[in-house]
Amino acid sequence: MQQTVLALVSERKKLVSTIKDLVIENLELDLEPHQVDEDCPLFGVGLALDSIDALQLVLSVEREFDMTVPTDDVTIFRSINTIADFIERSKD
């Protein structure tokens, strides 16, 4: 049981790390992964990304995880953690 939980935690950490790298690399942010908080808002305050970045982020998530991302649900891209939640939900 504990091993299963540990495996899930490890998998989640790996996913979050991949998303952080994706955001930094594709949007050419001058940040290190440890400087991006998983719950930090990506748009508006926080990382202050704009709508053009949003479309780029959608495309890069689709490419990296080989999935289709709806563009009418703005809650998916609220933070790194919400993107991870969406990807995990999509796998189920």
């Binding site: 709508s51 479309l55 959608v58 689709e62």
Partner: peptide, 10 residues
């Protein structure tokens, strides 16, 4: 024409 997001289009 690719992905669309509000008024933005790839």
């Amino acid at each position: 024409v690719g992905k669309r997001m509000q008024s933005l289009i790839q």
